[in-house]
Design a binder for these strands. Structure first.
Lengths: 146, 146
DNA sequence: CTGTAATTGAAAAAGACTTTCATTTGAGAC
DNA sequence: GTCTCAAATGAAAGTCTTTTTCAATTACAG
């Protein structure tokens, strides 16, 4: 699921960023999460690893990590952005409506479709954002039990 | 592009909402826009039609119109939500990275893909959000001229 | 170990969004 | 047309999120 810690840390260093205690805390927090976390949630959980982790630092670090490509923003219905660790390569997310659990899926089959869109609209397509919502297996079970 | 004004207005009435001056202003503003507008932008532009259009009203109205289905939120890179008039049915948006111009595309070809995702992940898929980014024809031209 | 530039947290500021409430207004009843 | 009343409105205040500023701290190269 999560690329191992050292690999992520190396990514930061390669881009000329230091590996500090707060940043380690944020990485570990994200690695342990099974759903997208808001900056505030990351701070709260991260304090387990770095007692006085500041919210400001969380924002700054998320920005850096997103640039570097080890973190991805996910669109969550309420409150817009959550963040998850990124698997390298092209991926999309399936988010559970009930518990926000996230599964990353690799590979998408939009190639042909996007070409047709390009022709129809005259746009030069540079990227796309696909997010799938549903109900995860656990929550489906829970529903039946009620 | 935009469904005609009366149709939109009827939609509101059908759902038991009144058609007020501020709401008309917001509809006309969105109808005249060629890119997603933030609530603040809608207020600013809308004041051309309703001098003292309040920001609070814009928020409230956008919520109603989104519920009713005549407006859609679009994910914009900076600042999360923009709003555009919705064409009835299932559509996606192609957004220009440079000028934010939006084209709505109808029909998407994710059916088969989504089924496979459901099988692989065990999720019951309930919806998806696809947004395509690119550079519109105009901006491509402009680039060549520079 | 030491020097230094990057990074940090706190405080303050800016911004986005919501709630509350007295006033106004649309639209159906007459 | 005009009356009536619930729905809708704008202003003000409040809350929450995000950014900026700045002095103190820290990672890490040498």
């Amino acid at each position: 699921m999560a690329a191992d810690f050292d690999t992520l840390a190396d990514h930061l260093r390669e881009h000329g960023h230091k590996l500090t205690r707060p940043r380690r805390a944020i990485l570990r927090t994200l690695a342990a999460a099974s759903k997208p976390l808001s900056p505030a949630e990351i701070q709260a959980r991260g304090q387990a690893f770095c007692t006085d982790l500041g919210l400001v630092t969380v924002y700054r670090t998320l920005e850096i990590m997103t640039d570097v490509g080890i973190v991805r923003p996910v669109h969550v219905v309420d409150g817009c952005h959550g963040y998850v660790l990124a698997t390298p390569g092209h991926t999309h997310h399936v988010v559970c409506e009930r518990c926000n659990a996230v599964i990353e899926i690799t590979g998408c089959e939009l190639g042909g479709f996007l070409e047709r869109v390009a022709q129809r609209t005259g746009y030069a397509i540079t990227g796309h954002w696909l997010e799938i919502s549903g109900v995860c297996a656990d929550c489906q079970q829970r529903e039946h039990t009620l």
